[in-house]
Design a protein around this nucleic acid. Sequence first.
RNA 1: CGGGGCGUAGCGCAGCCAGGUAGCGCACUUGAAUGGGGUUCAAGUGGUCGGAGGUUCAAAUCCUCUCGCCCCGACCA
Length: 482
Amino acid sequence: MADKGVTPRSEDYSRWYTEVVQKAELADYTPVKGCMVIRPYGYALWENIQTALDGRFKETGHVNAYFPLLIPMSFLQKEADHVEGFAPELAVVTHGGGKELDEPLVIRPTSETIIGHMYSQWVRSYRDLPLLINQWANVVRWEMRTRLFLRTTEFLWQEGHTAHATQEEAEEETERMLGVYADFAINEAAIPVIQGKKSDREKFAGAVASYTIEAMMGNGWALQSGTSHFLGQKFARAFDIKFLNQENETDYAWTTSWGLSTRMVGAIIMAHGDDQGLVLPPRLAPHQVVIVPIWRKDEERSTVMALADQVFQTLKAGGVRVRLDDRDEVSAGFKFNDWEMRGVPLRIEIGPRDVEQNAVVFARRDMPGKPGKTFGVPVDGIVAAVQDALRVIQADMLARATTFRDENTHEVSSYDEFRAMLESKGGFVRVFWDGSGEDEDRIKDETKATIRCFPFEMPDEEGVCFYTGRKTRRIAIFARAY
RNA sequence: CGGGGCGUAGCGCAGCCAGGUAGCGCACUUGAAUGGGGUUCAAGUGGUCGGAGGUUCAAAUCCUCUCGCCCCGACCA
């Protein structure tokens, strides 16, 4: 097993993850420390993520633009919390054209500063607002430890930056975009994320409030999969984004920012992968269907390939992302395993016996082996049959991930219980919380668990804080996190 | 940056303790037989043993330094 598949997750989740990424040919490390190359298959997945998100951004009135990679160091320093948060992980350019620069340039770790600077020049009147811009870009953060997709020195993401005339509007935008992320995660990536607010300890450097979608990975750890920040007027004051309101008074704009990165690829891998490797949700999979023809003799080959090609053309014309694996040099069994490692949601097997019946065999990636197989699927109506199957797979993946998350979410009422739970079962721990930031730090030191969020969905009842014993209405979700 | 581990063919490893002219599996090439779950057999290609210095008649092996990677911590989308 171990010699031909990936390491079972129970043995070593970290190794399992790296092996899945590499066997699926999603990405590799490069000679530059902590930097990853996203291989064509991994990039195709990212492109589908981009398309799904970008469509939602357009629907909510946003437009794309591009801001530069290099930012003057002084810009970073204008917002005190922001520079404090990012200073340790900045990559700095000190030379250009063979000379030392008068002022060092920072490779953007995020673009609030340069965009804030430009917004200050673009905004004069309330009529210029809201400004709703997104950019697809790369950013660099000099992290100490890296992991493919989850934390790399350079990563790809989108970052939305908006400016509004009123606090209410900016707060609405912050929540709207978190909702867009949650909708994407649930309906495209089949990951049942929890929406909530970050604790002060965990919020974005420079934000007034940060919101997050938190996903549970296969080992019970949490992964922050997208964030949306309400920046108040902090950046507007730092970058002088002022406008005249309807009363002809000067006011600072209210800004937001929100981002989702290639880390989402890591989330998909860890939320759905199994011992055979990657399992991709149909809506994002680069290939939704792979057709594997099976034959023994040359005369069989021609009839099998004729039907395989016919099915391929029909599906393609029907808008299905389909691939025909017509390689001669490897066996059918090899191809099965090959595409399983790559997570293709649905495999269509076509052999001589199927040709006789003018039918095919479906094999679901999310249900390996016999249970996921359907024999004798008629070629007539194949497009609808495939689309149905893909819909079912998508829905089942979400349902399975939701069940997994719920089964691994526990409630405790005392700190002893809390520690025991993290030791024995892990996962998310849902508690009443009325502690301080210092309490949070102490818990992190002692258990490695942090507050992932204060979920939006809270029961309308009062409870006792598991740590302080005080009465509170606030719920927190604690977990170990990537 | 602290603690642990590892650098030998594209990948995974053995050889090192007890120095003696570099090996295995996978992959790759060629040929044949196979073909409904990672086929089999045969013949091949491919290596500055991470780098530098030292000890020695002789270093993958011993010594010193150095570079890099992985895992665990601190940091984090």
